[in-house]
Design a protein around this nucleic acid. Structure first.
Length: 436
DNA sequence: GTAGGTAAACAGC
DNA sequence: GCTGTTTACCTAC
């Protein structure tokens, strides 16, 4: 089974020696275990057609060395998806890590010296790096997997945890949506039988978005770049007139707590740019949760909101309170009282908050900020050395929940779990989103 | 009942 | 018009 496809796009990105990112080392730092953290891992995992083999013998290929930092080749990604379509290279807004404004894409097409087998890698490993077009041209089927077992050196550092579980299996194992039941049941299906886009075996939008973001520097992309990624890597964009898939992407971005919007000011006086990125939890867990789980609450609402679609449709909360989850990356003017007020509102709207999730404390060094646009949650940047946490509440405990009740963290549940600085001990982003 | 896809209403910019 | 959020409905399992 080969999950690779479109891996010839955006093969590598070079950060010059002048990279001024404060918390990203100019040179790769070794991680404790399997490195696949897109930002600073010198080695990375590759897709392996045989999942059992992949699990037991993860293959590693060292990223080509270069002066300065080289992003890993992208053929290694989960499913082997390519991060960005080539036409996006050069787009200043595409796949741009604002902390590395001097990123220089170095690929003008697939370079064989980039994709060629590296030292220590076998030809068989190399063969699976060949780009293919599974999602675009062929059905996709989730592999049937067993629950993930922690690696021998588990628990590693948070960063290495990231790498350890970045695999389709981890997505499957950590997500009810991805859990294998039997055969290819994991294969997502289209909702409507007459759907032209029906591709039995294609991954759901959430997984595709996850992949697009995971492969992007900083794990973030602008919406348009996500569109472009889909156009290049899936058949969603085959019909230029069809916009439903874009709606679906936006729907998934909004509804899945694995994604968060980040407003970033790329420079003083410049208009803030909105990025979508993976939440720390998502990166940490190496997988994405099902988007549709939010409907658990909807069912409750249905009981009280009768309704047909249309005239009786319930106005959305966001029309009264702009409840975006945008995370602002630079600065804040929030005050404690503002946060308190906001939390009061949030809690009142969400009875489950505050009791379902335990109240614990963040590390003392973390700070909590309020975004003027509304509820804010998340961390930025998702890099070592920065532990700033943006919360929509005044109390640290309500920002995250990572410890319980969530199969999101299934691979590391229990006593093996290592405390992650990203982890706050309370409400998860997903629950926050679900309940807001 | 759950998961996923899609359409659409709606607000903000 | 684009973006983001939310609701509703549908099909498949």
């Amino acid at each position: 089974m080969d999950f690779s496809f479109h891996s010839h796009h955006f093969d590598r990105v070079q950060i010059s020696d002048q990279d001024s990112r404060p918390d990203l080392p100019s040179h790769p730092e070794p991680t404790q275990s399997t490195g696949n953290f897109a930002m600073n891992a010198p080695a990375f995992q590759i897709s392996v057609p045989n999942w059992a083999s992949w699990r037991s013998h993860p293959a590693f290929i060292h990223a080509p060395q270069h002066e300065g930092y080289i992003y890993p080749r992208i053929a290694d990604a989960d499913y082997g998806l390519g991060p960005l379509p080539q036409e996006l290279i050069g787009d200043p807004n595409a796949c741009l890590d604002p902390y590395s404004t001097n990123i220089t894409p170095t690929t003008a097409g697939t370079s064989l010296d980039v994709l060629a087998p590296q030292k220590g890698e076998s030809q068989s490993d190399w063969s699976i790096l060949q780009p293919s077009h599974v999602f675009k041209d062929q059905p996709y089927n989730y592999p049937q997997v067993e629950p993930l077992q922690p690696p021998p050196d588990f628990p590693p550092s948070p960063l290495s945890e990231v790498s350890s579980y970045q695999s389709p299996q981890s997505l499957i194992a950590s997500s009810p949506a991805m859990t294998s039941h039997a055969g290819d049941r994991l294969s997502p299906r289209s909702s409507t039988g007459d759907n032209k886009e029906e591709r039995p075996g294609h991954p759901p939008y959430s997984v595709l978005i996850y992949q697009a973001l995971k492969d992007a520097p900083g794990h973030k992309l602008q919406l348009q770049s996500i569109y472009s990624w889909f156009e290049a890597n899936t058949d969603k964009g085959a019909d230029p007139n069809a916009k439903g898939w874009q709606n679906s992407i936006r729907h998934n971005l909004s509804m899945n707590a694995g994604f968060e919007a980040v407003k970033e000011e790329l420079g003083p006086g410049k208009k803030a740019v909105n990025f979508w990125r993976l939440t720390p939890e998502t990166i940490h867990s190496g997988g994405i949760q099902s988007t549709t789980r939010y409907r658990k609450l909807q069912h409750q609402k249905k009981a009280t909101n009768s309704g047909h679609r249309g005239s009786t449709r319930q106005p959305s909360e966001s029309k009264r309170v702009h409840a975006t989850k945008v995370v602002k990356s630079h600065g804040t003017n929030s005050t404690h009282s503002e946060n308190e007020a906001h939390q009061q509102q949030t809690t009142s709207n969400n009875p489950s908050m505050g009791h379902e999730y335990g109240n614990a404390s963040f590390p003392m060094t973390q700070t909590y900020m309020q975004h003027p646009m509304g509820p804010v949650i998340g961390c930025t940047p998702m890099l070592p050395g920065n532990n700033t946490v943006f919360s929509d509440t005044a109390e640290p405990g309500s920002a995250f929940d990572v410890g319980h009740n969530h199969d999101w963290y299934a691979p590391e549940s229990g006593s093996n779990r290592v405390h992650d600085p990203f982890e706050g001990p309370s409400q998860s982003a997903w629950d926050w989103k679900k309940e807001n």
